[in-house]
Simulated scan of single mutants.
Amino acid sequence: MSILVTPQGVYKLYQFDTEKEFERCVVSQVEMIFGKRCVYLDCKRRIGKQGTKQSVPDAYLIDFSSQREPKLFIVETEIASHDLFQHIGVQILQFAHSFASAPRQVKQLLFDEISKDTKVYEACDGYAQEYGLRNVDNMLDHLVNDTFRALIIIDEATDELYKVVKNFRFPVEVIEVETYQGARGDHIYRFTPLLKDVSDVKESIEEREQRPVDIAEFDTIVVPAREDGFQETFLGENRWYAIRIHASMIAQIKYIAAYRVAPVSAITHWALVKNIEPWQDTGKFVVNFAEPAKEIGPVPLVPKSKVKALQNARYTSFDRLQKAKSLDEVF
């Protein structure tokens, strides 16, 4: 069993008995998990065409973090001890079917929920104006006619979960929320906020008072590569695996670049992406190249700069990569 040691004492990993108990904890941390530019609608109402099998999502999330367009996620909150195929696989497919068969119903449901809270309505109306949309009604039209996206919030992201998720043909994000309980019954939580590792790449640009790159503009994934893997796989096999990539980002990725770790410490090659496929049952992906990698730069790491040596995959735009003289100008 995992434990966390803090100045306030030892906290042990807490196992939930029911989905409802876990969901209450998630709702208590909504702003931390999703950020301030998201609206979480905690409502359970049936959706789907009359006369067909209807479904009841746990919640809806409208994500306004992109400067180009908002995104809607249908939320399923689950605990790993349940049958994940039935509780997640089947339910999310039903959500997708209901979403496609009754978009006007979904739109009305969202409008009703948003309208219940004046502050939520005003926030959504303000975001709609930012996107050049007339009002909330117009924004919801856009959302329900956009790509179906699902968000799974679970207490443990197991291999079994990723076996289920890899079969979906639409974006599915997974957020693992671990709960630890102290001797007094108090809780602390461990999770990675939604798309946090994507948006974090803007930090050094913001500090230089430049306009931050919008998540919607990211079309390139940069991966750290050791020399043997770089030579054998990136150059030799025209592919790279096993990479953690957000499902919502896959459709945007058109290029991949290799950051070769020390002693090279620079981005030296890039390739056009042919496709991105699930890598076994790991929740990770393999990026297959459309053609052999080409040289670039090199684009070096600057010692003692804001951007550190890459430890994990990061996102940027190909235009920014081509113009960069150092990693500070890439991210």
Results as ranks from 00 to 15, higher is better:
286 V>F: 07
244 R>C: 10
214 D>N: 06
105 Q>H: 04
209 E>K: 14
319 D>G: 10
281 D>P: 04
175 I>Q: 06
40 Y>F: 15
96 A>E: 14
58 D>S: 05
82 H>I: 05
160 E>T: 07
31 E>V: 06
318 F>W: 03
189 Y>N: 12
163 K>C: 04
54 Q>W: 02
253 I>Q: 01
246 H>D: 13
100 A>I: 02
173 E>N: 08
48 G>R: 04
137 D>E: 14
309 A>E: 12
94 Q>M: 08
241 Y>A: 13
328 D>P: 00
325 K>W: 01
216 A>E: 01
168 F>R: 06
118 T>E: 06
221 I>D: 00
141 D>P: 04
135 N>T: 00
238 N>G: 03
88 I>A: 02
118 T>C: 00
186 D>E: 15
67 Q>E: 12
185 G>Y: 10
90 V>Y: 01
17 D>Y: 05
145 N>Y: 08
197 D>S: 15
231 Q>M: 10
285 F>K: 13
118 T>Y: 05
83 D>G: 11
295 E>N: 12
79 I>Y: 07
175 I>E: 00
326 S>R: 07
237 E>S: 14
110 L>S: 05
255 Y>L: 00
309 A>Y: 03
282 T>E: 10
288 N>K: 13
63 D>Q: 07
60 Y>V: 06
181 Q>E: 11
209 E>D: 06
86 Q>I: 14
213 V>G: 02
175 I>L: 11
238 N>E: 10
4 L>N: 09
298 P>I: 11
42 D>W: 03
184 R>F: 09
293 A>W: 05
127 Y>H: 14
154 I>K: 02
220 T>V: 00
162 Y>Q: 12
46 R>H: 06
86 Q>F: 11
219 D>R: 03
201 V>W: 02
35 G>I: 15
296 I>G: 04
331 F>V: 00
160 E>D: 13
104 R>E: 12
298 P>N: 14
49 K>N: 08
179 T>S: 09
133 L>I: 03
104 R>D: 11
117 D>F: 09
216 A>I: 01
8 Q>K: 15
327 L>Q: 03
28 S>M: 05
225 A>Q: 15
228 D>W: 11
125 D>Q: 09
173 E>H: 07
267 I>Q: 11
303 P>C: 15
